[in-house]
Structure formats: structure tokens, C-alpha cells
């Protein structure tokens, strides 16, 4: 496959960025999107025309949440329920022009090129996305019965890898789906219910403080989430919040 790539290049956080156009040839349809970028970077080094394009990646197995590119108007590209590393070039056509942008959100400042600082998510987790661990003996796994339905919902929420595609796709750059997943995964479990009220208030307060936008129930986050986190978790987040503030 021969492709034209329009890629956002930005020297550092303060520099003014712009799109640069590159051409890559003989890309295998079976290669992943990141492998295609590896080929581009190798070509840039060998031809000595530009410094390699910076992009985030780690496991390349769709589970770490590090990769994240906004490809042709969609976070993680045109495929559904996959991360950028699991996106394959067969989803594109020979001769295509592909526009590659970084996540765009005020709380996700660009570090370089396509790499953004997503530590805002860490700060939200620090605000309450955990269960306080009391020291002592290891409890029996079956000591606290958990209904299968609740365990399933909790596991669905826990599938969130914190990649930030929800923020990237949202027209308001809202982090509600991320926060909802993190609140919901604990809210359905007895261990999480102990600190549920403080958790939801603190995490929403931190999300607001960091400058994420507000949810307008548009649904782009759900449509683009590589782990298919459902909007029902946002409704759960809202219920948890009202219960914490009103009841």
C-alpha cells in the first residue's frame, strides 16, 4: 500500500505545531498502524529528512492504554473496539491520505508531536479511584458473596485502560466516561461501597478542577471507546453522585 500521511509535528509543549506531509510506500495491509509509523520513522532516519515522529506506545497488545492517535477524525482510527496498536492497515485503501493528530484537550497538553501528557487521569485516580487497603490477614475469597450480575458490571467498567479516547472523541473534551468507569467498577462491589460517597465527590471535583469539559450525553465516547465502556456507567456515576450529595 502506498499512503500519504499528514502528521501533526510539534517540537515541544510551547512550540507552534503544524501538519507535515509524508509518503510511505509498500506498506503491508497486515501490518499494524504503529508498525506503519515505525516504517515511516525508519525512512525519516535513513533519508535524514526529519527527526522521527514521536508517538506513545508500549504493550502493542491493546491492553496498556498508552497508544492513542486521532486518525482521520476518530480516536484509534476507523476500526471499532480496538486501540491504535491493534488497528491494521487493511482498514485503509491503497493511495489513501491519512490525517494523524494528537488527542486535543486542555488537560492533555502536547509534549511532542503526537504525544500528550495524560497525567490528569492519574490525578483523578489519586482523588479517589482506589480502595483503601487495611493491613491484616488475607481474607477468604468467598467470605463476601458478590452477585454475578454485579461482578460482571464491575468487570466491564474495569476494562477501561485509561487511554483517553473518550476525552479525545468528546466534542466537549469531557472525561465523564473515564471517571464513570472508575467509579462504577468500585460502586458495584461491597469493598468499594465503604468509600463510595467520598470517592465520587472527590473524583468529580478533581475532573472539574483539571478543566475537562462537561458531558452532553452525545455518546461519542461510548462509540469510540476501545473497551466499549457503556454510557450506563455515566448514569451510574450520576446516581452515585446524587446519592452522595443529597441522601
Amino acid at each position: 500500500m502506498d499512503l500519504t500521511l499528514k502528521i501533526w509535528r510539534q517540537e515541544n509543549a510551547k512550540a507552534k505545531g503544524k501538519f507535515e506531509t509524508y509518503k510511505v510506500k509498500d506498506i503491508s495491509p497486515d501490518s499494524s498502524f504503529l508498525e506503519m509509523l515505525d516504517v515511516l520513522n525508519q525512512q525519516l532516519i535513513e533519508d535524514n529528512v526529519a527527526v522521527p515522529v514521536c508517538f506513545d506506545h508500549d504493550c502493542r497488545e491493546g491492553i496498556c492504554g498508552m497508544c492513542g492517535l486521532y486518525i482521520n477524525g476518530r480516536p484509534h482510527g476507523p476500526d471499532t473496539a480496538v486501540t491504535t496498536c491493534q488497528l491494521h492497515m487493511r482498514k485503509f485503501n491503497d493511495g489513501d491520505t491519512i490525517v494523524i493528530e494528537p488527542w486535543r484537550a486542555k488537560p492533555f497538553p502536547i509534549i511532542k508531536d503526537l504525544v500528550v501528557d495524560r497525567s490528569a487521569f492519574d490525578k483523578i485516580i489519586e482523588a479517589g479511584g482506589y480502595v483503601s487497603v487495611n493491613t491484616g490477614g488475607i481474607p477468604d475469597a468467598n467470605a463476601i458473596p458478590i452477585p454475578k450480575k454485579d461482578a460482571d458490571i464491575s468487570m466491564d467498567a474495569a476494562a477501561c485502560i485509561g487511554c483517553g479516547a473518550c476525552v479525545a472523541s468528546c466534542k466537549n473534551a469531557s472525561a465523564m466516561l473515564f471517571v464513570a468507569a472508575k467509579v462504577s467498577q468500585f460502586a458495584h462491589l461491597p469493598q468499594g461501597k465503604v468509600e463510595a460517597k467520598d470517592r465520587v465527590k472527590n473524583m468529580i471535583a478533581k475532573m472539574d478542577e483539571l478543566g475537562f469539559g462537561n458531558c452532553t450525553n452525545t455518546g461519542a465516547c461510548e462509540a469510540e471507546c476501545p473497551k466499549e465502556i457503556s454510557l450506563t456507567h455515566i448514569a451510574k456515576l450520576n446516581r452515585e453522585f446524587f446519592a452522595a450529595k443529597i441522601l
Binding site: 486521532y70 490525517v99 493528530e101 486535543r104 466534542k171 469510540e224
Partner: peptide, 22 residues
Amino acid sequence: QNMIARPVNYKVANNSQTSFFS
């Protein structure tokens, strides 16, 4: 607040399946 949350817009607008009128 929503406008402030994304100071720089994308070159290619998001075209995912969503609630159109929202």
C-alpha cells in the same frame, strides 16, 4: 467551559456514530 476545554480543534472533525442533534 466546554469550549475552553478544547482550545485547539481537530483538523478532521469527529465523525463517529453519535446523537446528531446533541
